[in-house]
């Protein structure tokens, strides 16, 4: 049998993606485009929250949406019909997350205008999307009340990479053992810098706070270009 030769590699599989993500962020900064990566588990209300938020922003800034799913285009169609802003569907080909290269390819498929804000709705999943930097300026995640206030303890990485944690479905708080103060404390333990914004996408309550945060973020990103 031939002798086995060993070639040392010592390389994190995330290294290339991190470089791609940094390059994409620099390019977006040059173009004045703010990219938000929105993550959550399936069924937390990402699309409904997005529709409510976009309808508050679309007269002030130019918004587009990229929907990432393993299959179907129901979310992209829903966003387009409910807000009128350009919305495209990305398919991940069975992958449970988007990486920076897939995000870049998605951005190339948007109508050739310039946008102030592009929202990437990531695949519904609390594990993998947190591991792959998409090149977004900020990460936000939605935690819905029925999921429980202990999620920051169970999925620490997701909560530690997010700048904003939206707590959605606050209208059902009376029916669940969800303690908002405990939730804030659990988020703080994982990420002291994260902002927690409670809202109800169905009734619209609290959505102004999230939309306001996003508008300020977009303005700040476009300054000192």
């Amino acid at each position: 049998m031939d002798e086995v030769k060993v070639i040392e590699i010592k390389k994190s599989i995330f290294a290339d993606n991190e470089k791609d993500a940094d390059d994409l962020r620099k390019e977006l900064k040059r173009k004045g485009v703010y990219l938000l990566n929105l993550m959550s588990s399936p069924g937390s209300g990402k699309t409904t929250t997005l529709i409510q938020t976009i309808n508050r922003l679309k007269d002030k800034i130019r918004v587009a949406v990229m929907e990432a799913d393993i299959d179907s285009d129901v979310d992209a169609v829903r966003i387009r019909e409910a807000t009128g802003v350009p919305s495209i569907q990305l398919h991940t080909g069975g992958m449970c997350h988007l990486d920076a290269e897939m995000t870049r390819q998605g951005l190339e498929n948007l109508p050739p205008d310039t946008f102030d804000l592009v929202v990437l709705e990531n695949v519904g999943n609390l594990v993998c999307p947190a591991e792959f930097d998409t090149g977004a300026v900020r990460n936000a995640m939605i935690l819905s009340v029925p999921e429980g206030d202990d999620k920051p303890l169970k999925y620490p990485l997701m909560f530690s990479v997010c700048d904003v944690v939206v707590v959605n479905k606050t209208d059902v708080l009376p029916y669940f053992d969800f303690d908002l103060d405990k939730c804030r404390e659990h988020v703080r333990m994982r990420n002291p810098a994260a902002r927690v914004i409670p809202l109800c996408a169905r009734t619209g309550e609290g959505v102004d706070a999230f939309a306001g945060w996003l508008l300020e973020e977009v303005k700040a990103w476009k300054e000192n270009q």
Binding site: V4, V6, I7, S12, I13
Partner: peptide, 10 residues
């Protein structure tokens, strides 16, 4: 860590 340590070739 999720790292490729080494590859083996014959």
């Amino acid at each position: 860590e999720v790292e490729i340590k080494e590859i083996e070739v014959q």
